[in-house]
């Protein structure tokens, strides 16, 4: 087994786990959204690195017969990035509305307010 050939996956896992950790450990909702986008970018890196062929070039047809990297992951991720920013905007607008309703974006304080209201 060639361990060096798996380094790209480990880099992706590290970034993904950092994003995941930000997502579950931080109480601030904006920080959570930033963590989510770190997570998202790590998945993009996974896909793109799977499409890479050693010695390949960008998939734009040229004269001669070069090796092209796999264009399919590029297409998927291209659309995913734009969808990602649209969903991030949706999340941020939810955060703004939460801030208007509760006056805070800290998860703990929101929870306390909810508990106080229920009693």
């Amino acid at each position: 087994m060639n361990v060096l050939g798996l380094v790209n996956y480990w880099a992706f896992i590290f970034l993904m786990m950092v994003g995941f950790y930000i997502l579950i450990s931080q109480g601030n909702l904006i920080k959570k959204i930033v963590g989510l986008s770190v997570f998202q970018t790590s998945v993009f890196i996974l896909y793109i690195s799977m499409g890479k062929i050693r010695g390949g070039t960008a998939p734009i047809l040229m004269e001669g017969d070069p090796v092209y990297s796999n264009p399919l992951p590029h297409v998927l991720i291209l659309t995913a990035i734009v969808v990602g920013v649209a969903t991030t905007a949706l999340g941020l607008s939810l955060v703004v509305r939460i801030h208007e309703a509760y006056g805070t974006v800290e998860e703990d304080e929101i929870h306390d307010l909810d508990v106080a209201e229920a009693e």
Binding site: F44, I45, I48, S49, G51, K52, I53, G56, T57, A58, P59, I60, S69, P73, H74, I77, L78, I81
Partner: peptide, 9 residues
């Protein structure tokens, strides 16, 4: 991404 040949991305 550029280094990984995905210029569009």
């Amino acid at each position: 991404f550029t280094a990984l040949d995905a210029v569009d991305v």
